[in-house]
Design a protein around this nucleic acid. Structure first.
Length: 572
RNA sequence: UCCGGUGUCGUCCAACGGCAGGACAACGGACUUUGAAUCCGUGAAUCAUGGUUCGAAUCCAUGCGCCGGAACCA
């Protein structure tokens, strides 16, 4: 885990897609507009789990910091609302950011560490007549804010004396006032066309313990009052956030100016990540978990970082994806197919090839002696023309008279262009032998066994006379097979834009999970380690489920299928 | 209806007054002991209307569409 993890995963080949913030930063660096340093930050609120949308924010902020030799990106928890926040989430977020491959240096920052400074600045604003305590109810304040067409009305307390304001603020802080009875507001302009500038709130009373400051505070700063100042305290130069904060920028700048920050950070907004077939609303994700539509935050179907991790995603593939989609101010929807492409691409480069039969069908090789066994040393990685240094490691795969093959690889009546098992057809058992189907054994109309003969001259799978055998299938020796449970995952939603529906739950994909209890996998897989990734040849990429393995159970989660040209052909 | 943001292949991102290009997806072919990967190829877009200009995706004007904004949330 280090900075270098995330350094060399820019898209292969060309310069990659656009990133307007990178252009701004590069320009600022050259023209000296960033005060001779480069500091960014990722500022999550510790009130939930990180998801793929946050991954874009993380890659963006940490990626920008890498633009300069001395650049750095802080991890700062925006913990200004103790009600929903907890150290559990702090730890989870740290684990996720680290897993994604980013390093935030010696320490993580917390907005709560700046509460004293923030308070001192608030006192200063009051003293300068730029803030006042409003002692009306939440409803009254809201009702006098006006709307998009009507200006707001000044609070009757707007012109309290400095002394009175100071005294009231002190009382708020000391817990002498009830929740909801008073707030501190900036004195800006109740008639502004920008509603955000109509005397925004700085502090509200909340007599709630904070997960880091305990009972020290009875008032907590609002987002706008805390964020820019936290950036300033940390010397942040470029403060990136999503488009919904564009409206906050004037306020962000107003506060920094009001308290006299000399090297103010610059807020830059970009379009957040939207993915089709995916939900990234914290509220909805929470609902999925709480209503048990999934098995938890780390359910492999969840777009959370922990979920993706358990699904078998690699951090590299996620970073490459973020590098490919670019950064702009368009509020677009990226095709989840691109994410899947990046996943397959990286897994293809890094996963060991092994054999596993998901839906076993027995094959007996009638002319193979009962007491005989063979063992083939098969490579973990296929030869590739496009890779110079190839891993040539192998493992032994046992072979015997009875083997398991994939039920889907046999058809009683073969359609055109079917190259797999069918009565009378010859296929190759990958790395082992050529076999021909002689008899099909059925029980109650169900095929239960294939009786085949093999060509003893074809050991290893090569055709002795050079005859063309088009079909190659995977297999596992029955005698040596290891039982495993396999979970086949698919997209959680079967609708492009589940969030648009009246009720997004209607679009849950009923086939998002299929559990196979009796898969037959090759013996080498018994030693798979937690989170180890494989390609089950011809079926897809799988990951050894960590929690199950640690509990002594062998379970593989399907990360993603292989592309399937036959399925496409068959549809026509 | 007010303020702000944004409109380029199906999707994402380029082109910054000078031949609209890349990636994913799609389609066709080659190769193949994974119907994978790899390789080659094809189709596919400037929101609309007017203006400026030798020349406009780019500049100007008007219109239209989409997104965000009136939390004691972030």
């Amino acid at each position: 885990m280090s900075k270098s993890d995330a350094k060399n995963d820019a898209p292969k080949g060309d310069e990659g897609p656009g990133n307007f913030i990178r252009d701004i930063v590069l320009d600022d660096l050259q023209t000296g507009k960033s005060y001779g340093r480069l500091v960014t930050r990722f500022p999550p609120e510790p009130n939930g789990y990180l998801h793929v949308g946050h991954a874009k924010a993380i890659c963006t902020a940490f990626g920008l910091a890498q633009l300069s030799e001395n650049g750095k990106c802080n991890l700062r928890f925006d913990d200004t609302n103790p009600e929903a926040e907890s150290t559990e989430f702090v730890e989870g977020i740290m684990r996720d950011v680290k897993w994604l491959g980013f390093d935030w240096g010696e320490k993580a920052y917390f907005a709560s560490e700046y509460f004293d400074q923030l308070y001192a600045w608030a006192v200063k604003l009051v003293e300068e007549g730029l803030a006042y305590v409003d002692t009306r109810s939440e409803g009254e304040i809201r009702d006098t804010r006006g709307d998009f067409h009507k200006p707001g009305v000044n609070s009757p307390f707007r012109d309290r004396s400095v002394e009175e304001n100071l005294a009231l603020l002190e009382q708020m802080k000391n817990g002498e006032l009830d929740e909801g009875s008073a707030v501190l507001r900036a004195k800006i302009d109740m008639a502004s066309t920008d509603v955000k500038l109509r005397d925004p709130l700085l502090y509200r009373i909340k007599k709630v313990p904070h997960h880091r400051t305990g009972d020290a505070w009875n008032i907590y700063p609002m987002y706008d009052w805390a964020h820019g100042q936290s950036d300033a305290i940390e010397g942040v130069t470029h403060s990136t956030c999503s488009l919904e904060f564009v409206n906050h920028r004037p306020l962000y700048n107003w506060f920094l100016k009001a308290i006299g920050i000399e090297e103010p950070p610059r807020q830059i907004e970009f379009g957040r990540l939207n993915l089709n077939y995916t939900i990234t609303s914290k509220r909805k994700l929470k609902q999925l978990v709480e209503d048990h539509h999934v098995e938890g935050w780390d359910d492999p179907r969840m777009p959370t970082i922990v979920g993706m991790r358990r699904r078998g995603f690699t951090p590299e593939s996620i970073r490459r994806f973020m590098n490919k989609i670019g950064v702009s101010k368009n509020d677009g929807v990226v095709d989840v197919g691109l994410l899947e492409h990046c996943l397959r691409d990286h897994l293809n480069d890094t996963s060991k090839r092994v054999m596993a039969v998901l839906r076993p069908l027995k094959v007996t090789i009638t002319n193979y002696p009962e007491d005989q066994e063979d063992s083939f040393d098969l490579r973990y990685f296929p030869p590739r023309r496009d890779i110079e240094v190839l891993d040539t490691s192998t493992r032994a795969v046992p072979f015997s008279r009875e083997i398991w093959v994939e039920r889907d690889d046999f058809m009683k009546e073969a359609p055109k262009k079917w190259w797999r098992l069918a009565p009378g057809k010859e296929v190759r058992l990958r790395g082992a032998a050529l076999i021909t189907v002689q008899d099909v054994v059925e029980e109650n109309g169900e095929v239960v066994e294939l009786r085949c003969t093999w060509d003893p001259e074809s050991r290893g799978g090569a055709a002795p006379d050079g005859r063309k055998v088009r079909g190659t299938i995977h297999w596992v020796s029955a005698k040596h097979a290891v039982d495993a449970k396999v979970r086949l995952y698919d997209r959680l939603f079967d609708h492009e834009n589940p969030a648009a529906a009246e009720n997004f739950l209607e679009h849950l994909n009923p086939a998002s999970l299929e559990v196979i209890d009796n898969a037959k996998v090759e013996p080498s897989l018994a030693n798979a380690s937690p989170e180890e990734r494989f390609q089950f040849q011809r079926t897809g990429f799988f990951v050894c489920d960590g929690p199950s393995k640690e509990a002594g159970e062998l379970v593989f989660n399907r990360t993603i299928t292989l592309k399937d040209a036959w399925a496409k052909l068959a549809k026509k």
